[in-house]
Write a protein that binds this DNA or RNA. Structure first.
Length: 252
DNA sequence: AAATCCGCCAACCGCAAGACT
DNA sequence: TAGTCTTGCGGTTGGCGGATT
């Protein structure tokens, strides 16, 4: 059995009804239409009533989720922008996995979408770096390398960007960041300072001065997992900065 | 061309908190 | 006040489809 779902695309239907007649699985176009029409007339809320009176064989929870994550007219679709990535990384560093709270600062984005972004993109990077995503090391990597790099790319995309100036690593004066000073619809106002740092590839070629992998580690000195010494100092060696950027930002 | 892998994302589940009776 | 219902949140699952072998 096949049925049309989501804008006419066809997908094998795994929809089923349990013993109480409740349907589960992907929503059909017909169900979406019913839900949208019902909410247009009666408004949001009272989700169990929506399910009951609209004639949908769905739970109230399922109706709510479908509306909030997909059918709502102000849901933004498409890739997470660089600006949005900055906001997500920054707010997550403050609040952790408070997806709904983070989503409140990204109009049109849902908590589910942000959660999926984090799990598929950010956690992937942590895995590649053999870091625990909640470790201080990885959080520092996000803060001191990934986020500045995103800012660089945002700057590069604006007319203010001067291509003759290539501030590769960027330092961060994070102590002066006040909560919620970032809005997704405007350029991030994080008071980070660009800083020129001598770099192994000043001529623009991507030749690593010392290939980290040759050392049999992940380029983070003693490794993310621990080890003694000043981790931050190790991180900021030119070689590691180069390596981290290659590792982290190829597909950001 | 077929099989397998893997990223993405929609949807489900369990739990907790608040609202209602 | 206690019990029930509703809503919201975060974690997890599973299918689709593109990429790779």
């Amino acid at each position: 059995m096949e049925m049309k779902v989501e804008g006419g695309s066809k997908r094998k239907a795994h929809q089923s009804e349990d013993e109480t007649g409740i349907r589960k699985g992907p929503w059909t176009v017909e169900e979406d239409t019913i839900l949208v029409n019902y909410i247009a007339i009666h408004g949001e809320g009272r989700w169990n009533s929506v399910a009951r009176f609209a004639g949908l064989k769905r739970t109230g929870k399922s109706c709510r989720l479908r509306w909030l994550n997909y059918l709502r007219p102000d849901v933004r679709r498409g890739n997470i922008t660089l600006q949005e990535q900055i906001v997500i990384l920054d707010l997550h560093s403050r609040w952790g996995n408070r997806w709904s709270k983070i989503a409140q600062h990204l109009p049109g984005r849902t908590d589910n979408e942000i959660k999926n972004y984090w799990r598929t993109r950010v956690m992937k990077q942590a895995k590649q770096l053999k870091c625990d995503v909640n470790s201080k090391q990885f959080r520092d990597t996000l803060r001191y390398v990934w986020m500045p790099r995103l800012l660089e790319r945002i700057r590069a995309a604006t007319s203010e960007y001067d291509p003759s100036c290539q501030p590769v690593p960027v330092t961060l004066n994070h102590s002066s960041v006040t909560p919620l000073d970032i809005q997704f619809h405007q350029a991030p106002s994080i008071p980070w300072q660009a800083q020129h740092v001598s770099h192994g590839s000043q001529n623009g070629s991507d030749v690593c001065p010392r290939v980290a992998s040759e050392q049999g580690n992940n380029g983070l000195g003693g490794g993310c997992g621990g080890g003694g010494g000043d981790w931050a100092e190790t991180l900021w060696s030119d070689d590691n900065i180069w390596f981290l950027q290659q590792q982290l930002f190829e597909d950001v």
